[in-house]
Amino acid sequence: MGEAALVLLVGLGLGAVFAATDHAVLTADAHGIGVPIRRATRLLLTQRRTTLAPDRLLWRIGCVAVPLLAFGSLAVVPITGSSLLSTTADLVWFNTMEVLLWGAVWLAGWGPNAVHALTGGYRFLAQGLAYELPLMFAIITAGLGAGSLNAESVVAAQDGMWFVVTMPVAFAAFLLGAAGFAFWGPLSAPAGADIAGGVMSELSGVDRLSVEAGRAVFLGSAAAMAATLFLGGGHGPWLPGTAWLLIKTLLVIGAMILAGRRMPVVRPERFMDVAWIVLIPATLVQALAVALLVISGYYG
């Protein structure tokens, strides 16, 4: 029970930090953590508007699924040294939560029976075909180095050296994938201004809160997972493991916003070329290099 509450709390906290930092960087309006809280309260109190002949059932399922999947992905991150759900396939679990988001976001775009939302949903899937394979190779590379798909074992395997040292390409591909599945920053075309907000365009009130908050929690959770898989998780001197993990997660969040907000939004069809011609070979070579290091006994 306490573990579940912790995941909920850490997820909301990281999501709020991400949203607040993102807002501050975009608008130079540094009101800190109050911004997302105020916005959430306002959305909670706003009445929902609807469209003509929406597919209400699928629309609601899509909106509700986004935050549920975000917390589900955080459940396999070992926050206190152990995770809420410790399985023999944590890394695949995280990946599955992110893939279920494909369905959720497309439904959120499909549901309102509106052209811009539907276009956004299609863009999300098209973009998914681009970032998904590099993201999968990045995740599996960390599992390969640790010889296990369990997140705690991956952290344990980084006792001597962080995985980012031997897996820099996988680390970068993971963060890019995170931007992709949260349709944020350079990969925010599914919610782009050129299609009036895309999948978000018809969302209002509590539905909008659900998707926006879920997206922020997903970004925070992805940063925590990046710290776990590549930056040694809770390893570090003096401070307890949980503190180290949170510090690293906050640094990853900062780095993501710093890098992501310097880039323009990439058109999905252009990103597709880059992903298949550059990213997939790069992540495959990265996995090959790690596999050779594993065979040579480098990771012990």
Partner: peptide
């Protein structure tokens, strides 16, 4: 059978999302 379960969910979701389109 955790791995088989999550992989089933992963593959089927991807397939259905693309198939739906």
């Amino acid at each position: 059978l955790t791995y088989l379960a999550v992989v089933t969910a992963l593959m089927m979701t991807m397939e259905m999302a693309i198939m739906g389109v």
